[in-house]
Design a protein around this nucleic acid. Structure first.
Length: 884
RNA sequence: GCCCGGGUGGCGGAAUGGUAGACGCAGCGGACUUAAAAUCCGUUGCUCGCAAGAGCGUGCGGGUUCGAGUCCCGCCCCGGGCACCA
């Protein structure tokens, strides 16, 4: 056997043997617990995998391999997220069709995953663009439709003029297309939506029971954005508008007729006495009616303002630090608390899409309203202060240009509510407004419905027919899938229609009554496909149904889901939503798809930048001009700055697993990525670090080859229950590795192996090691190493003369009492400062420890001239002498 | 502005309120070698000291405690997310 790590000699051999033995085929043996380990569904890009991607797949593989050895039925599948814009754009660029292209890329991913020894069950793999898969994506669409959760409406939507498609809210970042950075435009066209807003509260509530990183849960809560407040009605008065005396029922959906009113939503009903004006969004529907009643010059001003706002577009209206603008309508709104009329403005800082599109403005206690009041010259009143007496403090703030937004003060200048705390006033004023009949307490969510349709070719067709009467019909299950036609030319038209619309053979269909209908030509965004793939993996080749419920209910939920934190909102929220809908339909038993979620850190590559020349300017946030490694080598040293940035093709700093495996071996790569930092931390790729893991594996080979001649496979029947330092080290290692893998502390697991090697070297230097105990040690170590370095483990296992694969062996068990040290080092402190230590047998009583400690000369030195007040003894740990 | 993370040696990082710096990288010294690489052994927080030892040390300032990297309060800095959401 090898006396050092020679990966080229055996890695591909074992990969071949695993494949031949179909080692990773999912087992569903009765009587075993199940474990479902899953990685995020990857889109296979043409660039292939980098060592950064491996940081996702290797840890999951370690956990799944351990679980299998522990006796679990393990489901560890992998497939490809093939539909969507990235694939289509790439195919257009290459002037090819996306289908064969994506398959080729997927095969390359698979080859690379096999290369690093990840144990996927490839028999369950699929591409989301296969008709046998998307048939069921369409089927789930029909289920959503039947429940009223999929619907079509005309909407002002985000339109990317470069990608020529609409985008979901989540795909718009800072007013630009997330993918290509083009400023997003607004378009008013019919679109398909999923009614995720119906599930807003459940999507918040059920986060509590998930074992997810708190940060991700928080991001989801923020995205859903629950606000508890009051929605109420305000009357408008002004030239020619009589006041409406009777209250209005807000809970009814009836449009309010007669005299003009509008509704506002506020989370700060406690500040209502400070409402000194109101603001309508320029698009607010009531503006049309106000225009008719307004005086000529007001009407002109309002119309102009509305046109300007429209021309600016959403993203420009929301740029940071933009000066507030608005126009006075000349009408008044009646403050229901004071009975006074306050000015009513039109201003684009009020958003159409949130709440009612109108607000009560309280400039004293809202910075935005304050800024507006300063610009337009509206009154500012202080109604909240830290105490009843401290009004001057709040007024001082106002003079300083700041609103007082605190929520822990008391009310002032608020009639009978003066002196009450904010919390009390919110409750009482909420009741008051409900009793008055002009409003209700209400919860608003920031979350909008999920825009799913895309005017693009490469996506799952929406299974709907518009019949001869223009009504929607679902394509029945028997006619699914609606197959994407294979065509030469699929480039987006850019006029808001899908390229499918220009394919008559696709568009023209007969409806259910045999008349000519028109097929829906939009496709679904890629997030639809990835919202249920984890269910399909449970029963991937079922042609009769999306899945067999028994299989899905056996495997679901995913026990451990691993992927990058960048999908914190979109994919994870959508998948949760679909799962809940399917749960409500009785189609799955799990109400949440992913019980435990883990986000791996990124791998950063050292990347050279140079200073810009006089004619070059840097973009926002850029610190230099990116240069290639070759160019950096030619520049003077002081002109190049190196930065650690995420590996990406565009940065030219990618290290591929192919390179790393060729140079160092797959197991060295695995060990490096697991050891170099905690799982969730970013790491800086380093060749020295890779050398370190090569050295570690070589030491393992050396140890095993040294002891192989003495190895006794029957050690278990001979070893008895004696504990020696060697045996203690072995059982400590088993305990450590087992527990650390469970908590994703792979770095300390590997430190455990290193400590074990060091301990063994020390013990060997100190004397002869028992062959039986050494057999236990070597065998356990190899099996423990199997999930981390599976090729090495199998090679070493064979080196011991064992048959078969470590994967099929039982995970070593530790005996807790064997792990306990028989002597302990007691720390001796005087007044909390370490002064000495001493060795003592484990389990020595506190009184004895105190006596031993007080007898130490160093304790005497530091307590000299002082009185001992107290002695604190922590058995097995420390003695602290308190003296003064 | 709001919400999350995170600040520990030259570097990556360990530490259920109980000996801070495990383990690794890099460095230094040594062995082997004609030499180098590889490997092995030793050493390495900082300051003072020949040494024994002492003092200081987990972003900063307070606090709780016999004892704080860890808990509490107030700041600073870095990374990420959200952001005119009323």
């Amino acid at each position: 056997m090898f006396t050092r790590y020679e990966p080229a000699e055996f890695e591909s051999k074992w990969q071949g043997l695993w494949k031949e033995a179909d080692l990773f085929r999912t087992r569903e043996d009765a009587g075993r617990p199940k474990f479902y380990g899953l990685d995020f569904f990857p889109y296979p890009s043409g660039a292939g995998l980098s060592v950064g991607h491996c940081r996702n797949y290797i840890p999951t593989d370690v956990l799944c391999r351990m679980k299998f050895m522990q006796g679990f039925n393990v489901l560890h599948p992998m497939g490809f997220d093939a539909f969507g814009l990235p694939a289509e754009n790439e195919a257009i660029k290459r002037q090819s069709h996306p289908a064969p292209m994506i398959e080729k890329y997927g095969e390359n991913y698979r080859r690379q995953m096999d290369l690093v020894g990840v144990g996927y069950d490839w028999s369950r793999s699929f591409y989301s663009c296969e008709p046998s898969y998307y048939k069921w994506t369409q089927w789930i669409f029909t289920k959503l439709y039947e429940k009223g959760l999929a619907f079509r409406k005309s909407a002002s939507v985000n339109w990317c003029p470069k990608d020529k498609t609409v985008l979901a809210d989540e795909e718009v970042v800072g007013g630009n297309c997330e993918r290509c950075g083009t400023p997003v435009e607004k378009k008013f066209i019919p679109q398909w939506f999923f009614r995720i807003t119906d599930y807003a509260q459940r999507l918040i509530d059920d986060l509590d029971d998930l074992d997810w990183p708190e940060g991700i849960k928080n991001q989801q809560r923020n995205w859903i954005g629950r606000s508890d407040g009051v929605e109420f009605e305000l009357k408008i008065t002004g030239p020619g508008i009589p006041l409406k005396p009777e209250p209005v029922d807000l809970s009814s959906a009836e449009p309010i007729l007669g005299p003009l009113t509008f509704r506002v939503f506020t989370t700060r009903i406690d500040t209502i006495f400070g409402m000194t004006f109101c603001v309508l969004a320029p698009e607010h529907p009531i503006v049309e009616r106000l225009l008719k009643l307004a005086s000529d010059d007001r009407r002109t001003a309002m119309t102009t303002y509305r046109e300007t706002a429209k021309a600016l577009g959403e993203s420009q209206r929301q740029v940071e630090g933009r000066e507030k603008t608005g126009v006075d309508t000349g009408f008044m709104a009646i403050n229901p608390a004071t009975g006074k009329g306050v000015p009513l403005f039109l201003a684009d800082y009020v958003l159409t899409g949130y709440g009612t599109g109108a607000i009560m403005a309280v400039p004293g206690h809202d910075q935005r309203d304050f800024d507006f009041a300063k610009t337009l010259g509206a009154e500012v009143v202080a109604v909240i202060a830290p105490t009843v007496e401290s009004e001057s403090l709040v007024v001082g703030l106002h003079e300083n240009g700041e609103a007082f937004e605190a929520k822990d003060g008391v009310l002032i200048n608020s009639g009978e509510y003066t002196g009450k705390t904010v919390a009390v006033a919110q409750a009482e004023l909420g009741e008051w407004i409900e009793a008055l009949g002009i409003g209700i307490r209400k919860i608003n969510y920031r979350l909008r419905d999920w825009l799913i349709s895309r005017q693009r070719y490469w996506g799952c067709p929406i299974p709907v027919i518009h019949d001869a009467d223009g009504l929607e019909e679902l394509v029945p299950l028997g006619h699914l899938p609606v197959e994407l036609p294979v065509v030469e030319n699929y480039e987006p038209a850019g006029d808001g229609t899908s390229p499918l619309a220009s394919i008559p053979e696709f568009v023209n269909v007969t409806d259910s009554s045999g008349r000519l209908g028109r097929r829906e030509t939009d496709t679904m965004g890629g997030f639809a496909c990835s919202s249920w793939y984890f269910l399909r993996f449970c029963d991937p080749h079922n042609s009769e149904a999306a899945w067999n419920p028994e299989k899905v209910n056996y495997w679901m939920p995913v026990d451990c889901y691993v992927g990058g934190a960048e999908h914190a909102v979109m994919h994870l929220l959508y998948a949760r939503f679909w799962t809940k809908v399917l749960f409500d339909l009785g189609l799955v038993a799990a109400k949440e798809p992913f019980q435990r979620l883990m986000n791996q850190g990124q791998v950063l590559g050292n990347t050279p930048y140079r200073k810009p020349t006089a004619s070059e300017t840097l973009g926002v946030g850029e610190e230099g001009i990116l240069v290639s490694f070759e160019e950096a080598a030619t520049l003077p040293k002081e002109d190049v700055t190196w930065k650690w940035v995420r590996m990406s093709k565009s940065k030219g700093n990618v290290v591929t697993p192919d390179e790393a495996v060729a140079e160092y071996g797959a197991d060295a790569l695995r060990i490096y990525e697991l050891f170099v930092a905690p799982f969730d931390a970013d790491v800086q790729w380093s060749n020295e670090g890779m050398q370190g893991s090569v050295r570690f594996l070589s030491r393992v080979f050396k140890l095993v080859s040294d002891h192989a001649p003495d190895y006794d496979p029957m050690w278990a029947s001979k070893i008895g229950d004696q504990v020696s330092p060697l045996r203690r080290a072995t059982h400590q290692l088993i305990k450590r590795v087992t527990e650390d893998v469970e908590r994703f502390a792979f770095n300390t697991s590997i430190a455990g192996f290193m400590i074990y090697l060091n301990t063994l070297a020390d013990l060997r230097a100190a004397g002869e090691l028992s062959k039986v105990e050494m057999s236990e040690g070597v065998e356990s170590m190899i099996l423990l190493l199997a999930p981390f370095a599976p090729h090495c483990a199998d090679e070493l296992w064979a080196g011991l003369g064992q048959e078969g694969f470590t994967y099929l062996c039982e995970w070593p068990q530790f005996v807790e009492e064997f792990t306990v040290e028989d002597t302990v080092t007691i720390a001796v402190q005087v007044n909390g400062k370490l002064r000495d230590t001493f060795e003592v047998g484990a389990g020595v009583a506190s009184e004895e420890l105190e006596k031993l400690a007080l007898a130490l000369p160093k304790v005497a030195v530091h307590t000299e001239g002082k009185t001992i007040r107290k002695v604190i003894v922590i058995p097995g740990k420390l003695v602290n002498v308190v003296a003064n």
